[in-house]
Design a protein around this nucleic acid. Structure first.
Lengths: 197, 197
DNA sequence: TGATTTTTGTAGCGGTCACTATATAATTAG
DNA sequence: CTAATTATATAGTGACCGCTACAAAAATCA
């Protein structure tokens, strides 16, 4: 058994609460006091369990990644590049408009526009945001080998294009645009997939 | 002549400075103290000239609108819907990656993710963001009448699609993606304009 | 000149920020 | 039962937040 007084709260449950608050308001938009209150714990317990605000945010981000990462991993299993792209975009719309969570995407919007004080965490998020397009570029390169994507296409550029659409979908959802409208946007984007050889 | 002690600073120049700070850090990411320091004035002078933080932000926004609004107004003069869309997207890339200004778009990112305290200004910006797609929808409706856009296309959906790309371009620029890469994204988006009748 | 008007600079308001010192409560190990 | 360990709760820390009271300074108008 572990020594010492046992923790009164469920750490993972508290982290889920913190994640949703960071998701909705961003890193700087929610204070330690509000986090602790929503998590149902007092401030020293928060620091004891999670270290500090930045570490709590990164822990919440890890939890979020399980949701956001699945979109890509699952979509990559599709047979053609076109189906991969469509699956990613549909998955993104589902994620950023799901009424069970706040609107938008925590990775994209959680620390995008910040004060100078949070430059460090903004840059960390900027770097993390480079991972999905790298994955996509690899998948699209494979698609070229598989013959379901034209060899004229630059996989990195195509990945950046999909990432741009994803980012736009996150912004639009955060602005209040509905799931139906965003699904129409995805349909337009996919109307003529111009990359089949 | 106007009575009273004359103002020591150029109001429009100070507003330009404030605009750039809000552009870079968002509404909540820059404090009155930092604004006043950057503007080269003291805090009471700021309040005397601009009212309060929200009014200063909205005044800075009006100044920004002159830049951002021109993209649309100018682009609408293009002959076909395809040229209009291309011009808007190119103009957006130029704006959000211009090294003379901060990266990204103040209207899209200036008050998108905020604390509960700034709900009011977030909603104001959400509403303002609905104007460009309305303009675009009208222009695309005209294009259908002109015969350079397929009557199958829903102008509102197409406008929402372009707005989504614009928002994505703003996010990508804010994340550090280069102008060249974003121009490639625009080229991909325009590769096959699938809306000609 | 003297009254009026407006801006300026200093100084500070109550409130919140991230974070912590300290003491007490609750558990296990010996 | 005692010692050691860990979590809890209270109550704060200095720094910053948006904003303002107040008086001196600098202009115009009579």
């Amino acid at each position: 058994m572990v020594k010492g007084r046992p923790r009164k709260f469920d750490k993972d449950e508290a982290l889920e609460t913190a994640m949703k608050l960071f998701w909705q308001h961003g890193y700087e938009g929610v204070s330690i006091a509000k986090l602790a209150e929503a998590m149902g714990i007092n401030i020293p317990s928060l620091y004891s369990a999670f270290g500090n605000k930045e570490k709590l945010f990164m822990a919440a981000f890890d939890k979020y990644s399980l949701l956001g990462g699945h979109i890509y991993v699952d979509s990559f299993k599709q047979k053609t590049a076109r189906e991969v792209a469509y699956s990613i975009l549909k998955g993104e719309v589902e994620l950023v408009t799901n009424p069970d969570h706040p609107d938008g995407c925590m990775v994209i919007l959680g620390a995008l526009v910040t004060s100078s004080d949070s430059d460090h965490i903004k840059k960390r998020m900027d770097e993390i945001r480079q991972t999905p397009p790298k994955w996509m570029a690899e998948r699209f390169a494979q698609a070229i080998k598989d013959g379901d994507l034209s060899a004229d296409v630059n996989p990195e550029n195509l990945a950046c294009y999909i990432m741009t659409l994803n980012s736009g979908l996150a912004v639009q959802a955060k602005s209040g645009v509905s799931k139906n409208e965003l699904m129409n946007v995805v349909d337009i984007a996919m109307k003529n997939w111009p990359f089949v050889s």
